[in-house]
Write a protein that binds this DNA or RNA. Sequence first.
DNA 1: CTTTCTATGCTTTTT
DNA 2: GCATAGAAAG
Length: 746
Amino acid sequence: MSIYDTLNKEQQEACFYTEGALLLLAGAGSGKTRVLTHRVAYLIEKGLAQPWEIMAITFTNKAAKEMRERVDSLIGHGGQDVWVSTFHSSCVRFLRRDIDLIGYDKNFTIYDTDDGKRIIREGMKLHNIDPKQFKESGVLSAISGAKNQLMGPDAYKQSAAGDFRKEKYALLYEFYQDRLKKNNALDFDDLLFYTVELFRLRPDVLERYQKKFKYVMVDEYQDTNGVQFKLVSQLAGGYKNLCVVGDDDQSIYKFRGADITNILDFEKVYKNAKVIKLEQNYRSTKTILDAANQVIKNNSRRKAKRLWTDNETGEPITFYHTNNEKEEAQLVVDDIQDHVLNQDKAYNDHAILYRTNAQSRVLEERLVYANVPYRIFGGTNFYQRREIKDVLAYLRVINNSVDDLAVKRIINVPRRGIGATTIDKINAFAQSSGMSFFEAVRQIEHVPGLSRAENKIITFRNIIYNLKASLETLDLMPFMEQVLEATGYMKDLKAEDTDEAKGRIENIGELVSKLAEFELSRKEAGETPTLAGFLEEVALIADIDNMENNNDVVVLMTLHSAKGLEFPCVYMTGLEDGLFPSYMSISTGSEDDIEEERRLCYVGITRAREQLTMIASKQRMMHGQTQYNAISRFLKEIPEDLLEGKVAGSSYTSDISNTSALPKRRDKSFFKATPYQVKTPAKPLPSNANLSLDYKEGDLVKHSKFGVGQVMAIEPGGADYQVTVNFPSVGKKKLLAGLSGLKKMG
DNA sequence: CTTTCTATGCTTTTT
DNA sequence: GCATAGAAAG
């Protein structure tokens, strides 16, 4: 009996085929992570490689974390030395070590697209480019596209000659890279681009890694782009033991530069590549899988394969055609309630999926109304919120003062009476003498024509100087409190006294608890937690990474975010032509675009284990206007005998009163051990959060976002108490008493 | 320099 | 329908 006995024949084959190039075509739910982790175990067990000679690359932190855990539990001792990480964090590691060899500073900051847009906006002003004709996002995606094809600004300029639009892009690309370099910053694409450059220009560095990594594995290979392809071939160029895993039918990130030909042509590039197909699905019922197959088979550009399963036939797929999006939402909510109350299902067995984030609003409304606990993923990322970006900008300035963007962001936040004219003057001075913006602030006495504004700048400068000094002496948590105090940011928000401001205060509180977690985890790992380390971690994190499975809540997310996840009950909403497939993909008239959407549909269907509900609405409010859309063409590709409810003509006449025919909700506590509290409109904070708390360990407290939880611990920390609370909906959280607005229950 | 009003523009988004 | 950016007014 060995650990490999639990694998099927193809899985075993993939596991034992270790040398050379291997393409693993792994259909949805076919157990590819199992194969990858067992393969790692096999390599180590057979003595083919030491743990640190194996590299596994994923796209998301979540996938990396999951693989990490599974490798650890399978291998036990030594497992933690296997290099498991995302493309981007691997590159950060490479670059932090050696980027100086190609003329950059090792202490670079990572910019997100928001930062990028600011730079482009600036560049467009400088070059007099009409913002009506060029959108920042369009420019950025052109730049991103160029980087994905390994084209620097010069190469791009050459290729752009004669094309009016591209020539402007080229101009902005150059400006953008200049500005990033000045600010000592790299964007997401740069992380990959410069790593490839580093390896190209310094073969000695590349060789070190090629010797180190005897075996390289890449997950979600169908989503790789040009640079990633190059990077992978560089890394695996030594031993040439490269195993890529993917499913061409789940390639849904073309708009981010993913190139499906990487997987389709793998065998052409790696001539002796072995191909193994994993076609047995362990996740879904026959009915669901059948539907998925029937839909995806309408795509022409794909590798031949047919997913099958030994699972039961299961229930038919339910189809509803509702009159409008409110009914749609109500129906989903009622159905979930019914499952929870009458069918022994938990809330977290349910996922509601949609094409666009905007659709979540109506659903959220009905969920709140029905008191169903839920969590929305995606939309505006936590780290994109204004208050979070502001606070992070302060940290960035303290960490890397050359970061002009960050300095300009917070120089007048909160208001210090420093306006556009003053900033322009400093800017002009900085540029004429070739220094950074903050350097000009340092030498503010030399900047001409400021008069009264000078004192305001000096006040600001002192704040930053003092905080820089605090960072030297204090631990991160007390330092953070200093930042919030000394900058006046918290004071300003508290004075505002609106629900919105309270929400922002809570978000900052959440950021503080993230910092606490970070500090703790680094200390546990025996490392010194640094500000730079925290900023880096925060820059590379996504919303979905924070999804924890043990919270009993319904989850809402886009079809894109759902990739890689599975749920017993899945609701696919908004299945209408014009929404899904999107209007864009229909109007270009390109079959490729429709195929991409169809793959997205395939991804959605295959998320479901037991029950799949598909809903279209006759009428829907979109962009403030009522739209009447036809039922999605994808829905029509599913044979009627797999569906319950009628597709054409639609016999399902739902009016809201009809839904009250569903079983009435009884006292929730009969069914769920833990009472829950859904998001309520923020309750007023204890207005002067003084330091005496009205709750103690063991008490139940209420948080306006996380609901009710039990206080696990209270510890003094600097000027405020750190309170650890266990919330049934989100798990344990460490909060600052003054910021969190916790209220004792009862 | 700050506040308030009007216009505009909107898919998806692993990092 | 909503959020955000830029212009106009205080």
